[in-house]
Every structure is written in C-alpha cells, then in structure tokens.
Design a binder for these strands. Sequence first.
DNA 1: TGTATGCGCAACCATCGGTTGCATATAAGG
DNA 2: CCTTATATGCAACCGATGGTTGCGCATACA
Lengths: 112, 112
Amino acid sequence: MSAAVDDDLWSAVGDPTRRRILDLLLTGGNGTATSLSEQLPVTRQAIAKHLGVLDRVGLVHASPAGRERRYRVDEAQLARAVAQLSSVGATWDARLRRIKRIAETIQRGKDQ
Amino acid sequence: MSAAVDDDLWSAVGDPTRRRILDLLLTGGNGTATSLSEQLPVTRQAIAKHLGVLDRVGLVHASPAGRERRYRVDEAQLARAVAQLSSVGATWDARLRRIKRIAETIQRGKDQ
DNA sequence: TGTATGCGCAACCATCGGTTGCATATAAGG
DNA sequence: CCTTATATGCAACCGATGGTTGCGCATACA
C-alpha cells in the first residue's frame, strides 16, 4: 500500500525548507542553525525548529561544539527516506501503467 | 536544483490524505466526495476541500452527473507529478552516492 | 408533494511554518 | 575580572491549512 509508508519520515522530507536544509548539510558536511539561516531565506529560529523535526526522525544528528550545535546528516536514514520516496513514485508509476493497459483492453473489447 | 520542482504539484501530492484520494480514484476509476469519504477516515467536507486542491493543480477533473459531482484522475498530470517525485529521489540518491564516494576517497588518502 | 441524498458555504479549532523579542551560555578582548 | 559579541533556547504571536460541525440548497425518487 503506498499509504503505508513511514509517514513521519515522508512528512519530514516533504517540507521544501527541510529539503533545502538537508541539501545544504549534505554538500557542506555539517552546519549550525545560524550558518544555515545565512544561506536560506528564513530566520535562525525557523531553521532550529526544522532541525528539531529532522533530529526527531533521525535524519540529522547534533553534536555540541563549544557554544554552537553542529548538525550533520544521517546518510543511512536519508537513504531510507529517499528509498521510500522512490518506492511511492514507483508504485504509482506501475499503477498508472496498469490502468492504462486495462483501459486499452476495454477499448479493444468495445471495438469488437 | 532539487528544490526547483513545480512546488504546487509537489505539495498537492505531498499530503497523505490527498495521496489516498488519488489512490482510491485511480483504482475505482472515479468517485464523489461522499463516496470517497466513506472509504476514508475524514469527513466529506475535508475530502471536498482536497478535491478542490487537486482540481486546481489539474490532478483531477470533475464532471457533474445529476446531483453528484464525479471526479476522475488526470493521468497525464499525475504522471508528471510522479516523475517530479522520482526526479527528486534520484537527485538525492545520486548526491548520497557522490558523498559516499568522496568520503571513501578521503579515507583512502588518510591511509597512505 | 414530501423526503432523502449529495453538495456547497461558513464558522470554528488545532497544527505548523514562520516571525519577533528576550533570556541564557560560551568565547574573546580589554 | 569584566565587558562584549556570538550562538543557542524559550515563548508569544501570526497566517495558512487540514480537519470538524452545522446549515442551507438542489436534485432524485417515493
């Protein structure tokens, strides 16, 4: 069932800003709420909330370093999320194909 | 840029309930707000709102039939959405792979 | 004609992404 | 040591949105 995906993971990765955060963290290796907010059009607090969400679903992990909190992506977990993403896509793709085939069959039946 | 996807389509398909609605419409061929609400744990009005959203982004089309409004999926448009979905997945997949490769390279460098 | 069914509209509530404001902790300089 | 700058955290608030209930209207059907 395409609806049976781990919905927390999906919704975590469903937000555009969170996707951009993951993007930045992936390319930059790591980052803090402040550093990320300088590269995105939202405030530090918004970023902090998102990092909280991502942390709760295990997509990122934080490590306190002095007065700052450095975040990095949990690549294994992100791989899981991406896999689910593609699996949903694949499911629908397959279903669309099946529907199309059935439609054609019906059409052929009508012609006779 | 993975963030440059047509955000209306993405967010339309991003909602779990809307995904289930599309699911039901796809397998059932068509449906009304009332018929769908009987198969989902939300009220008819919630469904109606979702159908409105899906209609606005062109993922479904309505055809009035007597006193009811029958909806069906626009498969071409859904195919577009699904394609975008997989494209985002693919992008991240590729990026994860690249990161992993770089990490391994660095690791090898350290060993020497 | 009256009753049941399906839809639309409006008000309301909770949640969420986002903001501003303030307090707190740590680093850095005098 | 004391001050200042930087990074975080907490709380209140705002607008959009998914969801609900309640009502009125239209259409099918007895």
